[in-house]
Design a protein around this nucleic acid. Sequence first.
DNA 1: CCATACCGACTTTTT
DNA 2: GTCGGTATGG
Length: 733
Amino acid sequence: MQQSLFSDTPFRDGKNKKDGQGELNPSQYEAVTSIKGPVLVIAGAGTGKTRTLVHRTAHLVQTGIPPENILLLTFTRKASMEMIRRASLLMDESCHRVAGGTFHAMANMLLRRFGHHLGFERNFTILDRPDAESIINLLKSSLDLSRTGKRFPSKRIIMDIFSKSVNKSMPIDELLEGQYGHLINFLDDLHLIQKHYGKFKLEHGLMDYDDLLVNWQRLLAESPEAREAISSRFTHVMVDEYQDTNLIQADIVRLIADRLNNIMVVGDDSQSIYSFRGADFRNIMDFPRTFPNAKLIKLEENYRSSQAILSVTNSIIEKAAEKYTKKLFSRIEGGVKPIIYAASNDTTQARYVIGKIQDLMDEGIPLTEIAVLFRSGFHSYKLEMELTNNRINFEKRGGMKLTESSHIKDVLSFLRILTNPKDNISWNRLLLMLDKVGPKTAEKVLENIKSADDPLEALLNYPAGKSWKQGFESLLKMLLSLREPGLTPVDLFDRVMEYYDPLFKKIFPDDYPRRSRDLEQLRVILAGYHDLRSFIDDTTLDPPENIGKSGDPLSNPTDRLVLSTIHSAKGLEWDAVFVIHLAEGKFPPARAFLSDQLEEERRLMYVAATRAKRRLFFTYPREVMSADFMSVNSAMSPFLSEIPPVLVNSPGIHSSRRPAIPREKTLFQKDKPKSAKPTPGQTSFCPGMRVRHPFFGEGSIQAVKGPKTVEIFFPRHGKKTLRTDYTKLEILE
DNA sequence: CCATACCGACTTTTT
DNA sequence: GTCGGTATGG
């Protein structure tokens, strides 16, 4: 019935047959056409969530909503561009006027436009993580905190704390009590740094990622004028991946939609994987409370995966402690059972993957329809080497970003100062490049810029020390030359490189050839821009992946295997998916047992497995490299041993059974192993377990630190970290 | 105050 | 492999 209604609309997607379904199912249809009032869409993996958003965007435009009044908030810029592109295929070019992007990108745009209501400069610079951390370091030394015998927490940890505090809307006191208990002595110092950090950013026109969200929220909450302008501009708002929003983002959504209530959020609590960044899938559950007459729509038919794959993914998520039931079903019957493969080590794992990729290609699956996913960036190092040896092209997503390497940061510093002459962190970087200038000298010089109208002019009169006067003057002269009107971004880059190249070779004598390829890549990106500010903002908000060692960088980018962290694979799908490094202690990482992180790890495993359409492979090495370059035996991840054997094939391990791994290794269930002695090479310990040590007596396991290392608390002796292969531990019931 | 060299600790995930 | 702290010499 819906279909007949529907077939008159121009948003029938005849070309898009990839899900075997040219039109929308009743739930999708309802989500698409419910354009008034608040709507919550719970969309399981592969249920056509993106498709629904695409159609809805087209539908809104079709019903006469001006495209520029539509706001589509997504998790990545790529996702929103893709959706808008597809909507414009359904509807027409006007869809490109739809405002789309990440919360951070939208915040940036709005703060440049309306930020003056809160007293922000229009030309603020966005700090990425390394920038923010280097400010922390500057403050640490200027506040004279790095002294005193006690080891001060690193900039990394400090930023983690500050950022979590913002994203979880939790004061750092409370945060320290929980996750960072060991740092409680530094509470006062942290408060002090935090205060100065805020002041520093304000004085120098800087905003970190978190500030973008916070200040957008403040803009809506504190400036009636800005709020009116923004909420009347965006009359129809859609938010994708709502399970990965935090409280600030939820509040932004609330404030923006408050007036017309035309708000739709889409999410899946089972795929919430960003709690480390403050995301809380309870936002989904709270949505009906914030918007009392919200319509709830569930998308439950899976169009992506074969039933064989879906059975496995369902078994993974079934064990979740807390979930909101959706019953996913697929009409794609049968299919090939997923495979679990135990490789002897990292190298054989890589070779297995490559062998299978070649088989898949022989079966007619193109390279671009295959992906290899992993928990952490470094899990793919060996595979990257082997792929290069085998001349298979790949692109790696996740991990180190291009703009985070120091030579790129060096070059960007020159450009950033042009757009924001008060950008102290860039100035600092440039000054430190000069011979005979160190942290102290740089700090002294920079005291002169925060009050200056034109810092560059001010510095021209600065009495430089004899030993570095020359270098200082040529730096300023070069910066002045960049102000010449009419220069394109590429012109600027070339001028900067004229100055920087000799320094560059001096700073990186060992590997400047490799690094200079990054600079070339940067130049190519820059060539696509005519506005320097957009280039800088874009590369900070959506940093390009470091293409550094991805097979042959000159190869056709449309024919590449994707290697990706699971986080970066969110929302994507491939015909064949490999999930590698599913070894105990690696995925889930041992530290996940410490806190409440296990559930999130399970969802991560679920996200990984649900990316597959037709073929799914799980692999793990039986031997992993520990931190001290020792090879240690390792078992299968508990996530794998939990999967009912009948749902998978496990070659190399007795037909389809997997007796190699004792069932009690299922670390998530409360039943404990009965054996008193750990088998060599395997950990059968888990947190909470009671053990007896020949000397320390009875204790309880606090954490599993590695395959053979556990941390145990003994009431009479305190906390001990022990090697299970050296210590005879008796497990008590 | 700066440059260099060495040692030890730590390395999840991302806007 | 990389950051941070430290020791040494200029």
